[in-house]
Protein backbone atom coordinates (compact mmCIF):
# COMPACT_ATOMS: atom_id res chain seq x y z
CA UNK A 1 0.00 0.00 0.00
CA UNK A 2 1.13 3.49 -0.75
CA UNK A 3 0.80 6.16 1.89
CA UNK A 4 -0.69 9.37 0.57
CA UNK A 5 -1.86 12.64 1.92
CA UNK A 6 -5.61 13.13 1.96
CA UNK A 7 -5.52 15.47 -1.02
CA UNK A 8 -3.49 13.10 -3.15
CA UNK A 9 -5.68 10.17 -2.25
CA UNK A 10 -8.73 12.00 -3.47
CA UNK A 11 -7.14 12.29 -6.86
CA UNK A 12 -5.70 8.83 -7.07
CA UNK A 13 -8.49 6.62 -5.82
CA UNK A 14 -10.11 6.43 -9.20
CA UNK A 15 -7.47 7.33 -11.75
CA UNK A 16 -9.88 7.26 -14.68
CA UNK A 17 -11.96 9.97 -13.10
CA UNK A 18 -9.18 11.91 -11.45
CA UNK A 19 -10.07 15.09 -13.29
CA UNK A 20 -13.50 15.10 -11.73
CA UNK A 21 -12.96 16.63 -8.32
CA UNK A 22 -15.43 16.27 -5.48
CA UNK A 23 -17.46 19.34 -4.53
CA UNK A 24 -15.88 21.66 -1.94
CA UNK A 25 -18.56 20.72 0.61
CA UNK A 26 -17.70 17.02 0.25
CA UNK A 27 -13.99 17.71 0.36
CA UNK A 28 -14.51 19.66 3.59
CA UNK A 29 -16.49 16.78 5.06
CA UNK A 30 -13.72 14.35 4.10
CA UNK A 31 -11.15 16.69 5.63
CA UNK A 32 -13.23 16.93 8.81
CA UNK A 33 -13.13 13.17 9.24
CA UNK A 34 -9.54 12.62 8.13
CA UNK A 35 -7.98 15.54 9.98
CA UNK A 36 -4.21 15.33 9.78
CA UNK A 37 -4.10 11.56 9.59
CA UNK A 38 -2.64 9.55 6.72
CA UNK A 39 -5.02 8.24 4.07
CA UNK A 40 -4.17 4.87 2.55
CA UNK A 41 -5.36 3.57 -0.75
CA UNK A 42 -6.95 0.14 -1.05
CA UNK A 43 -8.20 -2.26 1.54
CA UNK A 44 -11.69 -0.80 1.45
CA UNK A 45 -14.56 -1.59 -0.87
CA UNK A 46 -17.63 0.53 -1.49
CA UNK A 47 -20.25 -1.48 -3.32
CA UNK A 48 -23.16 0.22 -5.04
CA UNK A 49 -24.92 -0.60 -8.29
CA UNK A 50 -23.29 1.17 -11.23
CA UNK A 51 -26.77 2.23 -12.28
CA UNK A 52 -29.44 2.68 -9.62
CA UNK A 53 -32.81 1.06 -10.23
CA UNK A 54 -34.55 3.58 -8.01
CA UNK A 55 -32.91 6.66 -6.49
CA UNK A 56 -35.09 6.27 -3.39
CA UNK A 57 -33.57 2.91 -2.50
CA UNK A 58 -30.04 2.25 -3.64
CA UNK A 59 -28.30 -0.73 -2.01
CA UNK A 60 -25.00 0.23 -0.41
CA UNK A 61 -22.42 -2.10 1.12
CA UNK A 62 -19.01 -1.34 2.57
CA UNK A 63 -16.26 -3.72 3.59
CA UNK A 64 -12.77 -3.13 4.91
CA UNK A 65 -9.92 -5.64 5.03
CA UNK A 66 -9.13 -6.11 8.70
CA UNK A 67 -8.43 -8.97 11.13
CA UNK A 68 -10.89 -7.26 13.53
CA UNK A 69 -8.82 -8.05 16.63
CA UNK A 70 -8.60 -5.92 19.78
CA UNK A 71 -5.30 -4.51 18.61
CA UNK A 72 -6.13 -4.11 14.92
CA UNK A 73 -9.67 -3.33 13.84
CA UNK A 74 -11.87 -0.91 12.01
CA UNK A 75 -13.62 1.50 14.33
CA UNK A 76 -15.87 3.35 11.87
CA UNK A 77 -16.82 3.75 8.23
CA UNK A 78 -18.36 7.04 7.10
CA UNK A 79 -20.29 7.32 3.82
CA UNK A 80 -20.70 10.63 1.98
CA UNK A 81 -22.76 11.48 -1.12
CA UNK A 82 -21.21 14.22 -3.27
CA UNK A 83 -24.39 15.69 -4.74
CA UNK A 84 -27.15 15.00 -2.20
CA UNK A 85 -28.70 17.92 -0.25
CA UNK A 86 -26.52 16.79 2.68
CA UNK A 87 -23.20 15.05 2.12
CA UNK A 88 -23.52 12.83 5.20
CA UNK A 89 -25.26 9.51 4.54
CA UNK A 90 -24.36 7.16 7.38
CA UNK A 91 -21.64 6.12 9.80
CA UNK A 92 -21.14 2.48 10.76
CA UNK A 93 -19.27 1.86 14.04
CA UNK A 94 -17.66 -1.54 14.51
CA UNK A 95 -16.14 -3.52 17.39
CA UNK A 96 -13.89 -6.58 17.27
CA UNK A 97 -17.01 -8.63 18.13
CA UNK A 98 -18.21 -8.04 14.56
CA UNK A 99 -15.55 -10.43 13.24
CA UNK A 100 -15.54 -8.63 9.90
CA UNK A 101 -15.75 -4.96 8.98
CA UNK A 102 -18.69 -4.86 6.63
CA UNK A 103 -22.23 -3.53 6.59
CA UNK A 104 -25.03 -2.80 4.20
CA UNK A 105 -28.07 -0.55 3.99
CA UNK A 106 -30.18 1.29 1.39
CA UNK A 107 -29.88 4.96 0.60
CA UNK A 108 -31.40 7.82 -1.37
CA UNK A 109 -29.55 9.49 -4.23
CA UNK A 110 -31.10 12.51 -5.90
CA UNK A 111 -28.97 12.40 -9.02
CA UNK A 112 -25.96 10.75 -10.64
CA UNK A 113 -22.99 11.31 -8.37
CA UNK A 114 -19.98 9.89 -6.58
CA UNK A 115 -20.12 8.22 -3.17
CA UNK A 116 -17.17 8.25 -0.82
CA UNK A 117 -16.47 5.84 2.04
CA UNK A 118 -13.84 6.60 4.67
CA UNK A 119 -12.72 3.95 7.14
CA UNK A 120 -11.04 4.78 10.45
CA UNK A 121 -8.79 2.06 11.88
CA UNK A 122 -7.67 1.44 15.42
CA UNK A 123 -4.07 2.19 14.44
CA UNK A 124 -5.06 5.72 13.49
CA UNK A 125 -4.92 5.15 9.74
CA UNK A 126 -7.68 6.10 7.34
CA UNK A 127 -8.75 4.44 4.11
CA UNK A 128 -10.90 5.85 1.35
CA UNK A 129 -12.97 4.49 -1.53
CA UNK A 130 -15.03 6.25 -4.16
CA UNK A 131 -17.65 5.05 -6.64
CA UNK A 132 -19.98 6.64 -9.16
CA UNK A 133 -23.67 5.76 -9.16
CA UNK A 134 -25.79 6.69 -12.14
CA UNK A 135 -29.34 7.65 -11.35
CA UNK A 136 -30.88 7.34 -14.79
CA UNK A 137 -34.17 8.72 -16.05
CA UNK A 138 -34.96 5.61 -18.02
CA UNK A 139 -33.34 3.27 -20.45
CA UNK A 140 -34.26 1.81 -23.76
CA UNK A 141 -32.29 -1.40 -23.60
CA UNK A 142 -33.44 -4.64 -24.99
Amino acid sequence: MIALTAATAMLSVLPARAEEALRPRTRAAVQGIVGDRTVREGGITLRLPAIAENGNSVPLAISVDSPMTESDHVTAVHVLADANPLAEVATFRFTPACGRAEASTRIRLGETQDLVAIAELSDGSVRLARQEVKVTIGGCGG
Binding site: L86, E88, T91, R93, C98, R108, L109
Partner: peptide, 10 residues
Protein backbone atom coordinates in the same frame (compact mmCIF):
# COMPACT_ATOMS: atom_id res chain seq x y z
CA UNK B 1 -22.31 -2.45 16.41
CA UNK B 2 -23.80 0.98 15.93
CA UNK B 3 -24.98 3.03 12.98
CA UNK B 4 -25.63 6.73 12.73
CA UNK B 5 -28.26 7.45 10.09
CA UNK B 6 -28.78 10.67 8.14
CA UNK B 7 -31.72 11.74 5.96
CA UNK B 8 -30.22 9.97 2.94
CA UNK B 9 -30.98 6.55 4.40
CA UNK B 10 -34.07 5.14 2.64
Amino acid sequence: FRMELHAAVS
